[in-house]
Write a protein that binds this DNA or RNA. Structure first.
Lengths: 187, 187
DNA sequence: TTTATTTCTAAACAATCGTTTAGTTATTTG
DNA sequence: CAAATAACTAAACGATTGTTTAGAAATAAA
């Protein structure tokens, strides 16, 4: 029929994702995306519609990158220990070569928290609720805990996870470890 | 000599501060500042130099707003209990009428974390270190604690404070209370 | 009241933002 | 090979960004 694409969409999105991860949505321009993705603006628009589309795809790419870790967490059956391991695994992602500091989803949650954006808001709350429900599920494995305690602890852990995301941007590995250990001291 | 200013700088900065608090630095435009501050762009520039200058003054204004709370905390002498009270007081600020959700300093810390900005970076790290040192000071009031434990707990509390700032934006008062109580369970 | 000085209004500034488009190049298919 | 089609390049789009400026309005001091 005609000419072939000279790039692979999933590959260029991966590069865009790293840029959004590092700079956030607003502080990433089309010019920067063009350069980092290695393709022309035309190609970006024809593939992803607009900047917002690139961002949504980047979020998907980020989720895919962390999916393995999430699946391991989901399938685990050691209760609180699994949650702690999930915290450690989350922190480990930032240490891996080629990755940025912090958590793209937490960053996005922060950046868009004051903004009315239906899609992002739904994406974020559904993600956060998903995490919370997983926490609840694991906490329930300890049958000695009552419902109220479980909900309290789940809320606490969601917010602690938020703190962890902040920590992975500036704190040392030792400090992060200390933080995780202290978080789970009385859970 | 000549004409008088028709506005009070501290008053218009207060309004600018609320805008930055709500939207962050990048998502606040000069147009929005003009409208919210109630004065012309010329006046803004003649009073504060540029947008960045308005922001720096806004940060000062925010610190002034929270100074009373900080002073109370500094002068307290009940150790960990004072830190807990500081957490509760921090959360209370967001409930006060006319104030925004979350913490402007934490928001700024988040927004500028990936950006090289000498002034803001110094402002933020010095603030964070100040908080941490206060935590250490209060923790040391319990003489049974060794140095290592104190540093660990101080680090933990700084990150927990970060989580609290996130909480004040979306969580209910009950959830925030639970979070604080759980944070101090084993400190 | 006049003069000097400052603040005000409002328009324009260059630069950058996200986005679109016209025209060229490449590749598949008949 | 020729025709059709899709992807490329690169320039321009209008809108908005932060910033500046020219001129009118106001007020203090002479």
């Amino acid at each position: 029929m005609a000419r072939k694409k000279q790039y692979i969409e999933s590959e260029v999105i991966d590069k865009a994702m790293l840029l959004f991860w590092r700079n956030g949505y607003e502080n990433t321009s089309m010019q920067m995306l063009e350069k980092e993705m290695g393709i022309n603006k035309f190609s970006i628009y024809s593939s992803f519609g607009n900047k917002y589309g690139v961002f949504l795809e980047s979020l998907k790419s980020y989720k895919a990158k962390t999916k393995t870790m999430f699946d391991t967490f989901k399938e685990a059956s050691n209760g609180v220990e699994d949650i702690k391991q999930f915290f450690y695994d989350s922190a480990k992602i930032c240490e891996q070569e080629g990755n940025e500091k912090g958590c793209l989803l937490t960053n996005t949650y922060n950046e868009f928290s004051g903004i009315e954006d239906a899609l992002i808001n739904e994406e974020m709350t559904s993600f956060m609720e998903g995490v919370k429900n997983l926490f609840i599920e694991k906490l329930k494995m300890d049958t000695s805990k009552d419902e109220e305690t479980i909900l309290k602890q789940a809320n606490f852990l969601v917010l602690a996870k938020h703190g962890l995301a902040a920590a992975t941007r500036v704190n040392t590995q030792k400090e992060i470890e200390d933080y995780i250990e202290m978080t789970f001291m009385n859970i």
